[in-house]
Simulated scan of single mutants.
Amino acid sequence: METKAKKKISKDNVLIFFLKNRALLLVLIFFILLSVATDTFLTSSNMVSLARQIAANGIIGVGYTFLLASDSVDLSAGYMMCMIGIISGLLSQTGMPFICILILCAVIAVICSSFNAVIENKFNLPPFLVTLAMQQVFRGVLMLLSNGSPISNLNEGIIYMGQGYIGPIPFSVLLMLVFIVIGHIIFSRTQFGRNVIAVGGNPEAARVSGIDVNKTRVYVSALLGFTIAIMALVSCGRIASAQTTLGGDTVMDIIAAVVIGGTPMGGGSGTVVGTLFGCLVIGLISNGLNLLKVSSYWQMVSKGVIILVAVILDVYSERIYDRMRNKD
């Protein structure tokens, strides 16, 4: 009987290991498959392109890791990013120094994102509904500011954020790694990170233990806003233009990456490093489908399937963890 019980536990442990590290395993699987399927995947130019593509998602992925871990969601981030990009383009045309553009864009994004959380707290509204409404507000504002047209002649500092190099490594990739490292330290080793997990796991228990739940959610939204601003500048700099459609569909990719990386939709836990691997998974799929010349419509279908599978794995993982806890 003891031997059977040990076998069952070992099987569960193995399954939990695979589920916890699913993003890393998927990266390895896709990397091998694409290396075999196409001759251009392992070329240096494609690796650099892939890294730069992942960089922008990795930066905002840090903000979304905190957000989902706190059991919240923001559907307005994509159009907020477009709006910040347009604002950066308009500020560039005034001849304003790069550092001033960076600060102003960051402040505007932090205020807009924090406003979402304030409205949610004040009127006790679901984040889904508030950010869905604000998505249309940001979309309308960016169209009013740009008249529906892209803005070129961006500040050189913005272009450097998206296209510059430090040695052989793209600046945007190094910037992403800085965000990942700092985000990991804050999330796993500070009181704020513990507060985020507590609020996401059980807000009432967190409130009883002395945590200001509403304030924590505002801080998390502010952090997300900051990452949105940086992502907007990196994305605009990468194509040397502020586009009205840039980032509009980003939210679903980021949520999929964060969930695949191991941060549950229901909050209460998370991993910033896992989010990096989740972004790699999404990036590898997009890059591979492009190299294989798959229709962009099929790419939309595949990403939708990926999000569905990620949510199923998330729910399945939680059920296994609960079963293990009950055994213990």
Rank of each mutant, 00 (worst) to 15 (best):
G63R: 00
L67Y: 00
A69W: 01
S70Y: 01
S70C: 13
D71R: 03
D71Y: 01
S72Q: 04
V73A: 03
V73T: 14
D74W: 00
S76M: 06
A77G: 04
Y79W: 12
G85T: 10
G85K: 01
I87T: 09
S88F: 15
S88T: 15
G89W: 06
L90R: 09
L91G: 04
S92P: 05
T94G: 07
T94R: 08
G95R: 13
G95N: 15
P97N: 10
P97H: 12
P97G: 11
F98V: 03
I99L: 15
I99A: 14
I99V: 13
I99H: 05
I99D: 07
I101H: 00
L104F: 11
L104G: 06
C105T: 10
C105I: 06
C105N: 02
A109P: 02
I111S: 04
I111N: 04
F115D: 02
F115C: 11
N116R: 12
N121R: 10
N121K: 14
F123I: 14
F123L: 15
L125A: 13
P126G: 11
P127E: 06
F128N: 06
F128Y: 14
V130L: 05
V130C: 05
V130K: 00
T131R: 02
T131P: 03
T131Y: 01
L132Q: 00
A133T: 07
M134T: 15
Q136V: 14
F138T: 02
F138A: 03
F138D: 02
G140D: 14
L142E: 07
M143P: 05
N147E: 15
N147M: 14
N147L: 10
G148D: 09
S149T: 07
S149Q: 11
S149C: 08
S152W: 02
S152E: 09
S152H: 07
E156V: 14
G157E: 08
Y160D: 06
M161Q: 03
Q163G: 07
Y165I: 12
G167M: 08
G167T: 07
P168K: 13
P168H: 10
P168N: 10
P170C: 07
F171I: 07
S172N: 06
S172Q: 05
V173W: 01
M176D: 01
F179V: 04
F179I: 06
F179R: 00
I180E: 01
I180Q: 01
V181Q: 11
V181E: 06
I182W: 06
I182E: 11
G183T: 05
H184Y: 15
I186S: 05
S188L: 11
T190S: 08
T190V: 12
F192L: 10
G193E: 09
N195H: 12
N195I: 04
V196M: 06
I197S: 04
A198G: 12
G200Y: 01
G200A: 05
N202W: 08
N202R: 09
P203K: 06
P203W: 03
E204A: 15
E204M: 13
A206L: 08
A206C: 10
A206F: 06
R207E: 14
